[in-house]
Design a protein around this nucleic acid. Structure first.
Ligand code: MN
Ligand code: MN
Ligand code: ZN
Ligand code: ZN
Lengths: 144, 144
DNA sequence: AACCAATTTATAACTATTCTAAACACCTAC
DNA sequence: GTAGGTGTTTAGAATAGTTATAAATTGGTT
């Protein structure tokens, strides 16, 4: 067993326990989807992820990509970002952060700083609890 | 001419100049859509607005509702709020404010306070200018 | 009236997402 | 090993919000 295999095994174990820790059963499809998605911090559409998984040589249906993304969102492994009526991104980085969206280029960029305020329960509508704070700063090219 | 008619005339004149000031030609359809939408501060889907206009006795096609909303958005008379992949709201209040969205009930509520930070150009991605700051606090019912 | 540009309209097209029901995978019991 | 069961995947259909198309209508101008 060389060091390359060691690293791969370790990375696979990380992905596996990421899913297992959330009570997600391991399957070939969920593993390859998670491998692709969690390889780095990125914002992908379902279709982009589908294409990347295909590119990696795996046979996974688009329905499974949607099912799995929905499952990951429910388990808190991934964050949905609704940009407009026909553009949903999935963010592999679930830590508290916000986004710039360039309406001209379609680029979605992380904002490092914590811009949105903290909420305490009594500031929320009665009988509700915080789910998530979605802050999107829409920008356009200055000289189009 | 009684005071009721005075008021109606005045209100119609307000709507007319709201549109004219943006270089929008006045038509029967644009007037009834604007009357309905700008009657109060509210968040409506295209379909809700379409139904309200029908209810008011006017014959306006859904295509015209979409065309007119798109025109109003372009002219800055109305603000689009993208809640999820199949829920776009149109906000008749374009002043700087943000929203609570209850994922259980579907309610979209204004937040009075100014929560999101101000931006100056050098804080934005290079070569871009601010368009709009969209802040949505998603909440769920505490005891579902 | 004839003309013209802008607008509206019905309808089709598009597309992201969800649904459906059958096939498949994997495990356990016998 | 075979049967049975549960969870998962799959192709394809369905759904629904939105946009595009192209013909009809409107309202103003000569
Ligand atoms: Mn908190
Ligand atoms: Mn859609
Ligand atoms: Zn991000
Ligand atoms: Zn609002």
């Amino acid at each position: 067993m060389n060091s390359k295999n060691d690293r791969q095994t370790t990375q696979q174990e990380r992905i596996d326990s990421l899913l297992s820790d959330q009570g997600i059963n391991l399957t070939r499809q969920r593993r390859v989807i998670a491998d692709t998605l969690f390889a780095r911090n990125q914002h992908l559409t379902a279709d982009q992820l589908f294409e990347m998984v295909k590119q990696a040589g795996a046979r996974v249906s688009k329905a499974t990509v949607y099912n799995t993304l929905g499952l990951f969102v429910k388990k808190g492994l991934v964050r949905e970002i609704f940009i407009d009526a026909n553009r949903t991104f999935y963010d592999s980085n679930t830590s508290h952060h916000h986004h710039f969206y360039n309406v001209d280029t379609g680029d979605l960029i992380d904002i490092k700083e914590r811009l949105a305020p903290h909420f305490v329960n009594h500031e929320l509508p009665a009988g509700t609890a915080m789910d998530v704070v979605d802050l999107v700063i829409r920008v356009r090219n200055s000289h189009p």
